[in-house]
Design a protein around this nucleic acid. Structure first.
Lengths: 160, 160
DNA sequence: CAGTATCCTACGTGATACTG
DNA sequence: CAGTATCACGTAGGATACTG
């Protein structure tokens, strides 16, 4: 009767959720992307309980998403995003964009993400074809690959 | 001492998490994207308890992500993705791509997402400049907008 | 300041029984 | 089949005290 884990599911989404699927995790990572490094920075920013924060940071280090470094100056540790952590950026940005659109702040956008060099806003996250054209959701379909083996994925005749 | 909600946070990511931040929700939506419509389809596919599924479906309908329709044929209801739900596609795909890369199936990719027309695989989800160039994570910065008011977002001198 | 440890609560969850 | 209701349980989460 225990909590069901998603680990056994042969599904990339479920695998990802088993790592970052808990409420606080993505908010911690958001702060990391904004430059938070120290325990106290995360804690004050989020208003999260210290034991939860401690557990999440340790988990993220175990998963290779953050790296724990002893700071050269001062006795505190620092938590730094690894490459694997930086790879989560599209997820965070997609979620931010959805919130911008569907749960907006009446005063206007909260954050605008821009290209550092030019200052121009980036394009809203969305599916892009191999040669760079934006695609509508319905123009995309899923094809079963080798990793899925015998499993089917569709509830109808053709996967969407 | 109750569970803290994220609703009050003036952050698009937190707002999104307060809607789809619970474990099962994205898996239910995954199935919806693959064509699942009926209660039993979700239930068998996920192995989720019926009361949880019921609660999640109702929540998603309330949030305007799914629409509940009485099927013309047969007495069952159907749950259909709304536009707002379809807008979640970049989130699901970003998470799927991360799982593909960092928790791969040794046999190969589980699913390949392709452009329906040409059959060519889509580009991996990532940040794209206004004029369509792929950007590295570090080439992106966040600028405070009107919706953020007085709040700051940075832990250092310049936001990342 | 940076955590760890402890205790407590309530929410998410799961099994099962029940209804239309 | 499509749910709703009930109940029991564990884990996430929160407050606080404690240690280096």
């Amino acid at each position: 009767m225990k909590y069901k884990t998603f680990d056994h599911m042969n599904c990339s989404l479920a695998q990802t959720l088993s790592v970052i699927g808990e409420r606080w995790t993505l908010l911690i990572l958001r702060d990391a992307f904004f430059g938070a490094k120290r325990f106290g920075q995360f804690q004050r920013s989020l208003g999260i309980a210290k034991n939860i924060l401690s557990a999440r940071l340790n988990m993220l280090v175990e998963e290779g998403i953050l790296e724990r470094r002893e700071s050269s100056q001062g006795a505190h540790a620092e938590y730094i995003l690894t490459e694997r952590g930086i790879d989560l950026q599209p997820i965070l940005l997609s979620m931010t964009h959805w919130g911008d659109k569907h749960r907006p702040n009446p005063e206007g956008d909260r954050l605008i993400f821009t290209e550092r060099e030019s200052g121009k806003p980036i394009r809203r996250m969305g599916v892009v074809s191999e040669d760079g054209r934006p695609l509508q959701a319905r123009e995309v379909r899923a094809v079963v690959g080798a990793g899925l083996g015998e499993q089917s994925v569709s509830f109808r005749k053709s996967a969407d």
